[in-house]
Design a protein around this nucleic acid. Structure first.
Lengths: 169, 169
DNA sequence: TTGACGACCATAAGGTCCCATGGTATCCCA
DNA sequence: TGGGATACCATGGGACCTTATGGTCGTCAA
């Protein structure tokens, strides 16, 4: 991505998606608009961990960290559930350093989990964003689109049925 | 690990995991990012004790000490529970010296408890970190991941059920 | 003496910092 | 309106620094 046609101000959420290449040293630029969100969030570095149910990496700043803390503290201290959450979340998460040009280097563990080799798809999800291998992201997106289509259709028919019901009253 | 791609600033928690080898003298480097947290915490040395229900060693600084104190003082003085906690935690804990290069030497008791021989997995848990035998850590992580997956699914379906309930009202 | 232990020093691999470049979008002024 | 100037961004490369790790040399105790 060179330059940016996107607004700078008023951004407190990660939106849109970008595909960028890793360089010879394994570095990749975080999209500028995401950096703006992170800067506003006030987190130094990039907090990220392997997504639980997807071959992707979840990433973000303090907002994401807070979400994790909320998940773990939902269980009593020293409970098995809490131990499991802390081990699986804190134990596999990393805070990547962002260099002066806004780039990061993913650990091998993260790259392996997502199947990333030479390019990365950044996908904004509001309070966080995900990092995908571009091909897998396209496939996942296609699948998600289908799911949404089906849900909308289902929702529409339910609304139609309710309206019909109301009309009969 | 040489150098570190992990952020230095904004870190007040132990995160990620690292596997390092013991040298011929039984020394092992504490990961640099953990040292940064300990330095901020202001604790001289490394406070650690065998984990109660896991073949691992709990380690940390003042934050960990404070947590233990909170745990024990939650029970009335001279109660059986308090005596038990104090014996199990204070009685078995050690403060390891950190040498000029950021290395420690684990006592035999700690190594035996965790089954450590030639390598160590450091696992961040937020306010503290654990020391595992690498193979056992992989197994434990897999188990914890499964537990979290199940719990999240359960949590998700509960939320979905509530939303559906709201929708029906 | 011998063995364990701590303080120092050495080094290579890998990370970090800094500067450079080419390309794109936006702005500004004629 | 058009075209040049400007700001910004992704990317590349080299010099420097940090880190993990190995080794040496004294010191103290058994």
């Amino acid at each position: 991505m060179r330059g940016s046609r996107f607004a700078r101000g008023g951004m407190d959420r990660f939106v849109s998606n970008f595909t960028l290449r890793l360089d010879a040293k394994g570095r990749v630029s975080i999209p500028a608009s995401y950096r703006a969100v992170l800067a506003r969030d006030g987190f130094e570095g990039l907090y990220c961990y392997p997504a639980m149910d997807q071959p992707a990496v979840d990433a973000g700043g303090n907002a994401l960290l807070g979400e994790i803390e909320a998940l773990t503290t939902a269980y009593p201290p020293y409970s098995d559930e809490r131990d499991a959450f802390e081990l699986a979340l804190y134990g596999t998460s990393e805070t990547l350093k962002i260099d002066g040009e806004g780039r990061v280097i993913l650990s091998d563990a993260l790259k392996d989990h997502a199947g990333i080799t030479e390019a990365i798809a950044f996908v904004g999800l509001g309070h966080k964003f995900q990092i995908w291998e571009p091909g897998r992201f396209r496939a996942q997106l296609a699948e998600a689109t289908g799911t949404v289509r089906a849900l909308k259709k289902q929702l529409g028919s339910r609304v139609a049925a309710r309206d019909a019901q109301k009309a009969r009253e």
